[in-house]
């Protein structure tokens, strides 16, 4: 294991240990021509590898104090008081944010965005025929608890056509943005739904190099956590990069 030397500082001497290196072969490469937008937006030159110093080991911290009561409930967080909740199949999306050492990561800001039940985004650039839902904004956020747990209530997003191939449809999906403790852990990804027949046809899904890796983005129906007569649950765990052991831990 590579060890970084300790920082020479005036006060306390922190033990600086970087994150496990990123396994690029488990991520989509930059250039994936079947996903046409990547063609002119993919760097052609190699990334320059640098060791993690404080700028990558640190990152913004978002406490639970930023959250409002309904920030993680997309069925009601856009509707004004007295309006009906969002239209669509009511679901709970929950899981844990873990690091690569299988430890829950507390305090992670999780932000999600999605289309409505008809497959339409509330965004000025989305002109799909499916109508907007006046009670649905399509954004939610939460901060993970002490064990890394998170939970959202929402409606299942619809699939939608998109301008890539002449007949490309996105499978139902929810976008996830995550902040770990350090900038090097920053991640944006997408969650898909178990059993969706569109998954294997999607050029964005297929930017991922192996089918087994796609599996890790597919939320499973979680009957045990379904709320009877209310909402089905889907389980989606997310793994952020882990940090190498500190010297203190090595001694224990």
């Amino acid at each position: 294991m590579i060890k970084f030397s300790k920082l020479a500082t005036k006060e306390q001497e922190p033990v600086v240990e970087g994150f496990f290196h990123r396994e690029f072969h488990r991520h989509p490469p930059a250039y994936t021509p079947r996903y046409k937008s990547s063609v002119v937006r993919s760097p052609k030159l190699a990334l320059v590898s640098i060791p993690n110093s404080l700028s990558e080991l640190t990152g913004p911290v978002f406490g639970h104090g930023i959250l409002g009561d309904d920030d993680n409930d997309l069925t009601v967080n856009y509707a004004d008081a007295g309006m009906r909740p969002a239209l669509g199949e009511r679901i709970i999306v929950h899981g844990r944010v873990l690091d690569e050492r299988d430890k829950g990561v507390p305090g992670v800001l999780v932000e999600i965005w999605q289309a409505n039940a008809g497959g339409r985004y509330r965004h000025f650039k989305d002109g799909y025929l499916a109508p907007l839902d006046e009670s649905f904004g399509g954004f939610g956020r939460t901060v993970t608890d002490a064990e890394g747990g998170y939970e959202f209530r929402t409606v299942r997003p619809g699939p939608y056509p998109w301008p890539n191939g002449i007949n490309d449809w996105r499978p139902s999906h929810i976008h996830f943005s995550l902040f770990g403790a350090g900038l090097a852990q920053r991640l944006i990804t997408q969650m898909y739904f178990e059993g969706d027949p569109l998954i294997p046809h999607c050029p964005i899904v297929n930017s991922i190099p192996e089918p087994s890796l796609v599996d890790s983005l597919v939320a499973r129906l979680d009957l045990a956590n379904t709320v009877p007569m209310d909402a089905r649950a889907y389980r989606f765990d997310i793994v952020l990069r882990g940090r190498r052991s500190s010297q203190f831990e090595n001694r224990s």
Binding site: S38, K125, G137, H175, L240
Partner: peptide, 16 residues
Amino acid sequence: LHETPSQTAGPFVHIG
């Protein structure tokens, strides 16, 4: 464990 694969933020990242 291994880091969850990335997916593009897409054109509607601003909603979130």
